[in-house]
Design a protein around this nucleic acid. Structure first.
Lengths: 207, 207, 207, 207
DNA sequence: GATGAATGAGAATTCATTCAT
DNA sequence: CATGAATGAATTCTCATTCAT
């Protein structure tokens, strides 16, 4: 019974933490890191400012926690997607599909994620970006291996370096995602991963 | 003679303005918008802070001016590149080449540019992004037209919607540019626009 | 039996109170009143913070209790020492000896005590100092009376006002104590009360 | 003329700095370091809080500056007093006289000074105390030398270690100063340095 | 017209204290 | 009755902006 009580408290804490993170996500993605005050987050999450500081040692920590959580979730899903099958073509389709799903479900954090991974990030000093970049690099390496292996099996033509193809796939999927994030109803993407893959799969020119 | 005097003064003013912008570019791209103070920019550009405020009505205005200037330069160069020839293939190669050149020559602003165009920018309130996005959209439309026209001439296969191909080309070129910005010596890109185009031109699969 | 239970509880309470005070003493004397939080004291004394507030109505009250306790102890010991004998010379020696013993045994509180009795204390508003000052004044009066009586018996020469001599003795003993507190091994004082008295007893000059 | 302008500005700055320090002295000595906010000091000195921070990099710096300034002044005056004459008796009288004068003229800072030199100082971490303690130690050494030299000339009896006599003199003078600070009108001290010296000079007992 | 000293609103963070469990 | 999570007032410090010289 005590166990139950403890876990109830623990669960309650987790719920609170999630609410704080949610308020942070919403505000940060809407207004940018520096244009959001801890007081705002406190108000939005309906906690006292002091309570916020019980959960996160400072503003940066709260921000990092948001990014870290998404990164973790994203990384897990991607790695799983790539291991689900042995077929290279299927792996690539899975990659694009899963990326789309995650982004759709977390639209507002994704803005933050892009802010952190692209361009001059908020917190050059933060050092969080290093961790993220390492995960992204890991994904690129995994994709590159898939291209490489597909080439060895003569599934794919060696039209470019495997690593470059990996970057290309990542880039294309992100771009179409962006398109969709900006105008969810008009853009086809998250529903159709094949469109992106086709751009890579078929050559444009009649060679 | 008064005209001459005025224009000399005018030229002098322009030079000063450029120095201020240059200082801003360097600092903003290195440390991020919110981590740079107007005093720093004043010191770096060797003007008094009051003088800065004679040229730009506030910090945001200075920032916007930087972005606007790059956007303008970029837009001009791209539009010229696309009009230089009638050959669709050549147009696309020009697009990639010019984009590469601009980015290489303005590496530090480009970080700012990405920060502004991708993800949650520092200053969503700024409203500057609207102007930028419009220019980018114009480029996309131009590229789409090129793809369309190439398809009509049967130069290109209709492997995807012209607009999607435009987005793809923009995305790929930006990604490889990023790669290069992060590790200038190892990456081939700005030297070789064809690598990118090949990814689109040849299909991966043996169809 | 109820009485016994009550008194057992009472004793238990006293023990708890003492533990809280002890934690406070250690922390306050090490870091200063304002650099110690109630949470720290709670943790160090191994009570919940709420329990602390059952015993002391606020932080200041806890602090005052510490000082009051030392003052009480000190006052008692001093008054006893002065009444132990009828010989004025012996009384003064007792005073210095007992002061030394108390201070040696409570080195860490003594820092607090000095902080409170000398200079601009942390908490002038506390109003505690009034009570302390009254006790000190009482000691001074007692010492003055001893000097006075010694003078009447022609034990002492009337080289200064009795009250001034009292102040002098208090001052000298405190100073040498300080010396000892700062470097316990090198200083002779608490072992040798006569050194201090000699400074008063023998004249410096060859008169 | 430019020189004049510069020095006028410089003088103006010094005047402002002094006003800030004065406000700090008054508030700190009245309420204690931690019970005074920077905003209060700003208000009292009639400057904006930001201006305070132009002159002092933080609260501690402002506090240290106050203490350092008094210490400097005090040290200078004491050292001069000790060098003014070659006669040991005169030197000691000078010491007591000058100390009295300084303290009378700076009554409120002296409270701070005592708080810093006695008991648990506000800022154990501050490290300022080290500098002060070194100066005090220097004074003690100087006094000890005077006693030593007086003893060698058989002006003084060797009734105690010279260093202990130095400590005794310092202690006595400070104590009577305290007395006076608490009740300026009733206490004779600062007017009569000889009273203190007599306590040391004549022996109490009829030996 | 240039200057930079002065301003003060606003942000992050701490911690004494309360009170529901 | 003990507990310690939650509270929010108060504090330090920064920096965009103004304006007297």
């Amino acid at each position: 019974m005590q166990e139950e009580t403890l876990s109830r408290r623990e669960r309650e804490k987790q719920r609170q933490r999630q609410e704080m993170l949610a308020a942070g996500i919403e505000l940060f993605s809407e207004k940018g890191y520096h244009n959001v005050s801890m007081n705002e987050i406190a108000k939005k999450s309906e906690f006292a400012i002091g309570t916020l500081y019980k959960f996160f040692k400072n503003k940066e920590d709260l921000y990092k926690s948001i990014i870290a959580e998404l990164t973790e979730k994203f990384d897990k899903a991607i790695m799983e997607a790539l291991e689900e099958t042995d077929d290279e073509i299927e792996k690539l389709r899975n990659y694009v599909k899963v990326k789309g799903t995650i982004f759709m479900e977390n639209a507002s954090i994704v803005r933050l994620y892009f802010a952190e991974t692209t361009g001059a990030s908020f917190n050059i000093k933060a050092g969080l970006d290093i961790e993220i970049r390492e995960k992204i690099e890991k994904h690129m390496q995994s994709l590159a291996l898939i291209f490489e292996s597909g080439m060895e099996k003569h599934l794919f033509q060696r039209i470019a370096e495997p690593y470059h193809l990996a970057v290309a796939l990542d880039s294309l999927s992100s771009s179409f995602l962006h398109l969709w994030l900006e105008a969810p109803d008009r853009q086809p993407y998250p529903v159709d991963p094949d469109m992106i893959l086709n751009i890579l799969y078929k050559g444009l020119l009649n060679l």
